[in-house]
């Protein structure tokens, strides 16, 4: 047992891949057998998007050790860039168009990540939290004042006021505060699964690389890491921009699975919700983020919760507090350790 072929980290990583693959296969089989309710089927794509969001924020919070309070801002960039790209790209195959839109969303969000990260990650302390908080609000204001339309000549954009004039056959794509309406839903559960797997591969390989060890060294002790010659800004930026790009791809996946998206959807509350997924699942634990994001997204929509009517969101909040208490209680952890034989209960640091 102790001298197993795979290291503990690898074991956890493969278990995480396995968990995602099994969940996908089971849902697909149940879907084709007609065993899934409309509610669950409607939630598959959002769940994948939230899982990827939680994974990407876990990279910033758990691995890099910096607090980001504006992760929904990157999701927003990806969502709107992706929605506009999907409407404008002349690709007839839906999966290809989705892939291209996701790539555009990820690249744009990554670029924005560079813009936010370069000045801020040079500083020590909680500056990143403050700046990302402001960044989320800025993105929201920008999108609320942006108008993008398309006609035969191509894309038209206008800022603050809608001054777009079309020749003929044009249509508005992004309508300022009203967001993008009438989206052609091309996101599929399969696409969400593929994205989740790609993100997991990227995160696990990054963490297990030389760069990843440098990033974690920065998290654990910045001064010690600097003293052995680790370039602080470079490695911080690497993790932060990767995280932003993944959030952008998740945003595109989310947006193209909705009929309507507005900038106000990606507000401070959304950032906090994603942070809750990460904290609840355990910082640095990718499998925890996946489980927490899935559980907390499905929970308020279960028939049992719907039965509670007006008390639904209150009970949801209380369940969240309870789970936090239970997962952080030493007593219960000890109990779990006694039930589950050695080692597995404390599989830290994925």
């Amino acid at each position: 047992m102790k001298k197993s072929y795979l290291s503990k980290t690898n074991w956890v990583n493969f278990a995480t891949y396995g968990m995602v693959i099994i969940a996908f296969v089971v849902m697909q089989l149940m879907g084709s057998a007609g065993m899934l309710s409309s509610t669950i089927r409607g939630q598959l794509v959002p769940i994948c998007a939230y899982v990827v969001m939680a994974l990407s924020l876990n990279l910033t919070v758990g691995i890099l050790g910096e607090l980001s309070l504006g992760h929904a801002g990157f999701m927003s960039v990806g969502a709107f860039a992706g929605a506009v790209a999907a409407a404008a790209l002349p690709i007839s195959s839906a999966p290809l168009r989705l892939g291209a839109a996701m790539l555009i969303g990820a690249v744009l969000a990554g670029l924005v990540g560079v813009v936010v990260g370069v000045p801020v990650l040079r500083l020590n302390g909680d500056y990143l939290a403050i700046v990302t908080l402001a960044f989320g609000q800025i993105i929201k204001s920008v999108v609320e004042n942006l108008y993008i339309g398309m006609d035969a000549k191509g894309l038209h954009a206008s800022f603050l006021e809608n001054r777009i004039t079309f020749t003929d056959g044009g249509r508005m794509i992004l309508n300022g505060p009203m967001g993008v309406n009438g989206i052609n839903k091309i996101s599929t559960f399969t696409a969400g699964f593929v994205l989740t797997m790609i993100v997991l591969v990227v995160i696990f390989n990054l963490v297990n690389s030389r760069a990843g060890r440098a990033i974690m060294a920065l998290r654990d002790n910045r001064i010690a890491a600097e003293s052995v010659g680790i370039n602080v800004t470079k490695y911080k930026l690497m993790a932060f921009v990767t995280s932003a790009a993944m959030a952008g791809a998740a945003g595109t996946l989310f947006a193209l699975g909705q009929n309507t998206i507005t900038a106000s959807k990606f507000d401070f509350n959304m950032s906090i919700l994603i942070l809750v997924f990460v904290v609840l699942g355990g910082q640095g634990k990718m499998w925890g983020s996946i489980l927490a994001a899935t559980f907390l997204t499905v929970l308020p929509e279960t028939p049992a919760m719907r039965e509670l009517r007006d008390y639904r969101m209150l009970v949801y909040a209380i369940v969240m507090i309870l789970v936090m208490l239970v997962t952080n209680s030493d007593k219960l952890k000890g109990l779990a350790g006694r039930i589950i034989p050695k080692g597995k209960g404390a599989a830290d640091n994925g």
């Binding site: 309710s37 409309s38 509610t39 939630q43 909705q258 309507t260 028939p303 719907r306």
Partner: peptide, 19 residues
């Protein structure tokens, strides 16, 4: 069903009603 004035939740609520 409740949607808390959110498009995403309103679709969930609609699906619940469909079920």
């Amino acid at each position: 069903e409740d949607d808390a004035h959110d498009p995403e939740k309103s679709v969930n609520a609609y699906n619940t009603l469909k079920d």
